[in-house]
Simulated scan of single mutants.
Amino acid sequence: MRIEQLQHIIEVNNKKSISEAAKTFFMSQPQLSHSMKNLEDELGYKLFRRNRGGLIPTCQGKEVVGLAREIINTIEELKSLASGEANLTGNLSLTLAPGAFNSFAGLLLTRFNEKYPNVNLMITEDIGIAIVDKVAMGACLMGVPVWTSNDDDTMRKLLDSNDLAYEEIIEDDLCLVIGKRHPLAAKESIELADLEGMTFVDYCGRYRNLLRNCGIDTAKREFLIVYNREVMKTIIAKNQGIAVFPRFFLHNDLFFEQELLSYRAIEKITDKVKMKMYLIYSRTEPLSHSAKQLKKMLSEIIAGNPS
């Protein structure tokens, strides 16, 4: 049994295809098939079987793949101790919720690449439920979805049902975002009555139900639905609308740094509803040493931003 064979079966499990897995190792399909057959002959049982979705592990195969991951991760940690963390290698994938992507992806990529230049980190953007699905299916290693405190129990049950681990990174306020010269900019705290007759900018149509749940009569409000955050911020900066948005989504943003936009607490909403950001990953597959370092850095960057 060789280390390469363990790497081979891990990749076959990930890709569900020998031909696709072979591309990772710059091997031909027959070469990888031969490697797997030799390992199965040595162990005395089949590791994979075929169904409509491709190759899936047998009962013994699941255990072997799990043990193989632990062995490979342990070897990676031993190498890092011997040669220094800067020499860590591998591929990591992370999917962030839209606001988190806008605020933290650039900073995370820069810092991680500086410290671990040989690890290939890919960061993509998606919405909450899609992030849960991607991590559950193994399409990405870790994810950072966001939801309200009202949905916390429901989302935790969903994560548990998908055998996903989750750690709360930060909890923050839901605030009113306004332009520098907006009439409400002079007020330190906003009451619901102050929002009468205002035009709301709704990012992707996600916040209307939230406003309704907070006691705002959305039937009497004009909504501009936009699908681009920069367009949303431009409209607000020109005082053509206001928005309700999680406060931590405003970090590292030029509109706020240049004081074109600001945020205010909303009476009976800011204290009532909180926005929660979680880090999620599989409970069943151990994280590699490089993945643990990414997890640590991600939490430090997000939780370390001032509110």
Results as ranks from 00 to 15, higher is better:
E70M: 11
E70P: 06
E70D: 11
I72D: 04
T74H: 11
E76H: 12
E77A: 14
L78W: 11
L81Y: 12
N87E: 15
T89M: 10
L94F: 07
A97G: 07
P98R: 00
N102A: 14
F104T: 07
F104I: 07
A105L: 02
L108A: 05
L109P: 02
T110D: 12
R111E: 11
F112L: 00
K115A: 12
N118V: 01
V119I: 03
D126E: 14
D126W: 02
G128W: 08
D133C: 05
K134C: 01
A136W: 10
G138P: 01
L141W: 06
L141E: 09
P145W: 08
W147I: 06
N150T: 07
D153P: 01
M155V: 14
M155I: 10
D160K: 15
D163I: 14
A165E: 14
Y166I: 01
I169L: 15
E171K: 15
D173C: 12
L176H: 02
L176I: 00
G179N: 02
R181P: 04
R181A: 04
R181E: 10
H182F: 06
P183C: 00
L184K: 01
K187D: 02
E188A: 11
E188Q: 12
A193D: 11
A193H: 07
E196G: 13
E196I: 14
M198K: 10
M198P: 05
F200N: 06
F200T: 03
V201R: 03
V201W: 04
D202C: 06
Y203C: 10
G205I: 00
G205F: 01
R208L: 10
N209R: 09
R212P: 03
